[in-house]
Structure formats: structure tokens, C-alpha cells
């Protein structure tokens, strides 16, 4: 605090330089992708960090059109958001009770949910269950799957975090006549902001970037998410890597925007942290 406005001491300048060097390490491979996305299909196969001889912004238009990216973006957006909302809702209320009850059952439930982060998913039996429910192939099925796969991890984070919020807070609220619903949704949930944001980013990113499950659970490509469009542009015998790079750069943009947006909130989560203990 006292340093504000003054020139930085040497140690900090050194640190700054180290960070800058690390940035180069991070940026070089990414630059290869971004620069490549503007090259032609031969130039890009050199896979270096040279500037394109001619900047072909048209690659992006090709990708949007041929990859049917507008539709795919909407699919991704809806599937991700709905899954995320379900995940956050069911995990936060479940974790609230698991964290507050101090019984063998709540302890068991904690580990029971935790198994979900460890176990590999079983695709064929899961498909069978959706068939029995007459949900196979629907948006609902993939949304439920994504929510299910993220519940474990989210409960794991929520329980840990809720335990750091003093129980005295609950008692005070109840004493003042708040219902348990009001206590959770009006008082506690806002305090969970840092962990909500953390889970929000991680779950959003996990679902957004998944390239696996739609292959098995969505038998209709008009429901496919953005990352799957990339398969239209490369294969064993013919590849247009410039288009692949453009497609993947576009796919990454929403996650970057979300992170930039969320970063502000992580900082403003400071006040919430001050409530701890």
C-alpha cells in the first residue's frame, strides 16, 4: 500500500521480468494458432510463427458458414448455461445440508458424491438409461449428463467452502425469524460468490470444450456443440489447418470473455472473504 505511486523496487522489477518471460512461453504456441488461422492452407502447414504473407480474414467466414457455427454456438450456449444453472442449484443446496449436518450420513454423502470425480463414465449403460426414459438424443439428455458429471466436483468445492462460513451466521438469521429458504438464498448464497464464480468458470469451460459426449448422446448434428464443428476441416488424408485454427480460435473466444468478466468478480469477492471466521 505504501508503495503506491512510487517507482517499483528491484525485486518487483525482477518479478515483472520473470512474468513477462513466462508470457512469451505462453503466447508463442497460441500465436502459432492465431497467425495460422489467417494463412492459406499450404502456408499454414509450415506451423511456424511467421506472419501470414497475406492476411486471409475470409477463413473465419468460411468456417462460420461451413461449420454452421451460428447454430452450433447457440447449441453450446444453451446446453452449457442450462447445465451450469442446474449444477449450481442442485449442488449448492445439497452441499449446504451436507456441510451443516455433522452426521455419519452427511459424511457418507460427501464421499459418495466425491466418487463421481474419480470414476470414468460408462457410456453404454448411460445411453440405455436414457432410452428407458425416452430421452435419448434430446437436449435434455445431454444437459442432464453434463449436470450429473459436474455435481460431484461442485459439491466437493461447495462443502469445503460452506464449512468456512461460521454457523453463527445461520443461527443469528434464524433467531431474527428468517426461514431456512431465506437464510440460504438471501444470506448464504450471496456469500458463496467466490466459489460460485470458480465453479461457474470451471464447469462452463469443461462443458464448452467437451468434444466427446455429443458424439454419443446427440445423434443429430443440428444439436451439436461448437467444438465438434472442427472435424469438418481436417482428417487423415485432407486437412485445412488454417480453417481448423480459425474454428478453434472462435470456439475459445466465449470462454476467454467469460474469464475476463469473472475476473472482476473474483476481485470484488473480497468483501465476502472478509466474512470468514
Amino acid at each position: 500500500m505504501r508503495l503506491r505511486g512510487r517507482p517499483l523496487p528491484l525485486g518487483k522489477i525482477a518479478l515483472f521480468l520473470i512474468l513477462l518471460a513466462s508470457c512469451v512461453v505462453i503466447v508463442v504456441p497460441l500465436a502459432m494458432m492465431v497467425l495460422g488461422s489467417f494463412k492459406n492452407s499450404l502456408e499454414v502447414t509450415r506451423f511456424d510463427i511467421s506472419l501470414p504473407k497475406k492476411w486471409l480474414a475470409g477463413n473465419y467466414l468460411t468456417v462460420i458458414k461451413e461449420g454452421k457455427l451460428v447454430r452450433a454456438f447457440l447449441n453450446s450456449f444453451c446446453i452449457t448455461i442450462v447445465s451450469l444453472v442446474i449444477t449450481i442449484f442442485v449442488s449448492s443446496i445439497a452441499s449446504f445440508v451436507i456441510a451443516r449436518k455433522n452426521t455419519r450420513l452427511s459424511n457418507f454423502l460427501y464421499y459418495f458424491f466425491f466418487i463421481g470425480t474419480l470414476a470414468p463414465m460408462q457410456i453404454i449403460p448411460t445411453i440405455n438409461i436414457f432410452q428407458i426414459l425416452h430421452l435419448y438424443g434430446s437436449y435434455t439428455s445431454i444437459i442432464l449428463i453434463y449436470a450429473t458429471l459436474n455435481i460431484s466436483f461442485s459439491c466437493f468445492l461447495y462443502v469445503g467452502f460452506i464449512k468456512t462460513i461460521p454457523r453463527a451466521l445461520d443461527e443469528a438469521a434464524i433467531m431474527e425469524g428468517a426461514s431456512i429458504f431465506k437464510l440460504f438464498f438471501k444470506i448464504l448464497f450471496p456469500l458463496l460468490k467466490p466459489v460460485n464464480i470458480t465453479i461457474g468458470i470451471l464447469v462452463f469451460m469443461g462443458i464448452w470444450n467437451d468434444i466427446n459426449l455429443p458424439l454419443y448422446f446427440l445423434p443429430d448434428s443440428s444439436k451439436w456443440t461448437m467444438p465438434l464443428s472442427v472435424y469438418r476441416f481436417f482428417g487423415r488424408y485432407y486437412s485445412d489447418w488454417n480453417l481448423v485454427f480459425a474454428d478453434l480460435a472462435l470456439t475459445a473466444v466465449p470462454v476467454v470473455i467469460l474469464y475476463l468478466f469473472a475476473q472482476k468478480y473474483i476481485v470484488s469477492g473480497l468483501t465476502a472473504g472478509a466474512m470468514k471466521q
Binding site: V90, I93, A94, V97, F113, I129, T148, S152
Partner: peptide, 17 residues
């Protein structure tokens, strides 16, 4: 309050597992 999470988790994860 645990039931919604538990229901989909058991049905769509534990059972297939």
C-alpha cells in the same frame, strides 16, 4: 435438499457405474 442432486447422480452416474 440433497435429493435432487442425489437422484440424478444415482440414476445417471452410479447406476451405469
Amino acid at each position: 435438499w440433497v435429493l435432487p442432486a442425489l437422484a440424478i447422480y444415482v440414476l445417471l452416474f452410479i447406476l451405469p457405474m
